[in-house]
Simulated scan of single mutants.
Amino acid sequence: MKLVLDEEEIWIIECIKEAHIDCGFHVRDVIKKAKARYGLSRSTVYEIISYLEFHGLVKTNKSGNRELDQSISYFIVCPVCGKEVPENEYIVENGRAICEDCYLEEHQRIKFADPMAVRSKKLFRKSHGLEGTEGLTDIQKDLCEFIQTEGAVTPEKISTLFGLTPQETKNQLAILRHCELVKWRQIGDEICIVLFDS
């Protein structure tokens, strides 16, 4: 049976890892950490530790102390993308356990309107003799061609047609903006992407 833990159970696992010393962990240390960090009550901590013991994730060692059983695997459900992630492939940040992909996507945002990035990209492209779509990735070239064909397109439409997440779309468009190939334009009630020279 696959063990899938919820958010509070992951919090307790993280507190156990911090409270764990060579001979195991003491529940009172876990309670202190869980109460201070997540506001969990003593009874909730005991309930979750009992649940983890029932599933074998927490066991009593030869010294009579509790410890995590590293041989028992568990999963979490990423709250962002909804996929099940093994215990060694998630990241806890601000109390949220998310998969590595969602973590990277949240932290790799490129600013669309960044004057320093525009200047840097222009100098780089000029020094390497790159013009138009030269030096771009295939997806960036396809985006430029699509925007040229459509005239004006919303980022949502790009995400849907190219199978990109909204953040991936924003990042790709930001790079094209830094190359001064595209820009934002309000058309009616919509904010659209158009070619830079239009």
Rank of each mutant, 00 (worst) to 15 (best):
K2C: 00
L3A: 09
W11L: 02
I12K: 03
I12H: 03
E14F: 00
E18V: 05
H26T: 01
I31A: 04
Y38D: 02
L40Y: 09
S41K: 14
V45S: 05
V45K: 05
V45Q: 06
Y51L: 12
V58I: 13
K59W: 00
T60H: 00
N61Y: 03
D69S: 11
P79D: 10
P79H: 07
V80E: 13
V80I: 15
E84V: 00
E84S: 10
P86W: 05
E87M: 12
I91P: 03
V92H: 01
N94C: 01
A97I: 04
C99Q: 02
E100T: 10
D101W: 01
L104E: 11
E105A: 02
I110N: 02
K111F: 01
A113I: 13
A113D: 14
P115F: 09
M116K: 14
F124M: 13
E131N: 11
G132E: 08
G132A: 05
G135D: 06
G135K: 08
L136V: 02
D142M: 11
L143Q: 04
L143S: 05
P155S: 15
L161E: 14
L161N: 07
F162N: 03
P166F: 01
K170T: 02
V182F: 05
V182W: 09
R185D: 12
Q186E: 13
I187R: 12
C192N: 14
C192F: 00
I193Y: 09
V194I: 15
L195G: 13
L195P: 05
